[in-house]
């Protein structure tokens, strides 16, 4: 269970996350939605100990993130930020091997290699195994990063806008993979999404943030309503039912 107790983060005089208390971990996929600057990425950063809260506390499985050794946390929790820019020339295999680092500390065992092969296989990257990341398309590169996170073999997986800069096909592909990771591998995924229809299609629970606070936290059908979405995004959103699923229309 990941629990935030009154977590607050400020940059100068701007409060980006304001006294947030919430728990994750009961559901397979939790989607974080909200307008730009709502604090979604900050929340993930705090949980993933990439940022430190100015007030409050974050616990992962009952242990304070700040006092738990980072190397131990790395076996429980993996976080992938958006817009990963890697300068080093690494192959898909290299990057997935590095994902095993918390377990292997650099010396790969037979078990580590199995995890690596499985992750590469799971993301159907075998063909690109020895290709350098800068030779791949955006979708393939994103799959390589997710394979890295998968090889890390953690209970919790935090993904910050994994659909950024991907085309329709790759967005769907990634979300299906995330769904499979939750269903087949029992991973607990928290994912920041911009497209609420992806959240509605794939997430078990949707948490909406606005101005650093949680404004809605419920299962899909309670969130996918015009009044709720209007309150979150401050713009008119029409919700229609198509094939028994709520679909948000916000294209104007």
């Amino acid at each position: 269970m990941i629990t935030l107790h009154g977590a607050t983060k400020r940059y100068g005089r701007t409060t980006v996350l304001d006294d947030v208390s919430v728990s994750f971990g009961g559901e397979g996929i939790t989607a974080l939605i909200g307008p730009n600057g709502a604090g979604k990425s900050t929340l993930l950063g705090l949980v993933g100990r990439l940022l430190h809260p100015d007030a409050g506390r974050v616990d992962v499985d009952g242990r304070d993130v700040r006092s738990t050794p980072s190397a131990q946390l790395a076996k429980t929790l993996a976080v992938l930020r958006q817009d990963n820019h890697i300068v080093a020339r690494l192959t898909v295999q290299d990057i997935v091997e590095l994902g095993r680092f918390p377990h292997s500390r650099g010396r790969l065992t037979v078990a580590d290699r199995e995890h690596i092969d499985r992750a590469i296989d799971y993301l159907s990257l075998d063909e690109y195994r020895h290709r350098f990341l800068d030779e791949l398309s955006g979708g393939q590169r994103q799959r390589a990063f997710i394979a890295m996170v998968l090889a890390q073999d953690t209970k919790y997986v935090l993904l910050d806008e994994p659909l950024n800069n991907l085309d329709l096909r790759h967005m769907t592909e990634i979300m299906k993979l995330v769904r499979r990771m939750a269903d087949e591998l029992g991973r607990r995924v928290i994912v920041v999404l911009h497209d609420i229809n992806f959240a509605a299609t794939y997430a078990d629970r949707i948490v909406a943030l606005r101005d650093g606070r949680i404004v809605a936290d419920a299962a899909r059908d309670q969130i996918m309503r015009p009044d709720v979405l209007r309150a979150v995004y401050d713009t008119t959103v029409d919700v229609r039912e198509i094939d028994g699923r709520p679909v948000a229309l916000y294209y104007g």
């Binding site: 790395a74 976080v79 080093a88 690494l90 590095l98 680092f101």
Partner: peptide, 14 residues
């Protein structure tokens, strides 16, 4: 190698 990925990746990998 891990450091070469940047501070956030390094922290994530413990």
């Amino acid at each position: 190698s891990v450091i070469g990925l940047g501070e956030e990746f390094a922290t994530n990998l413990g």
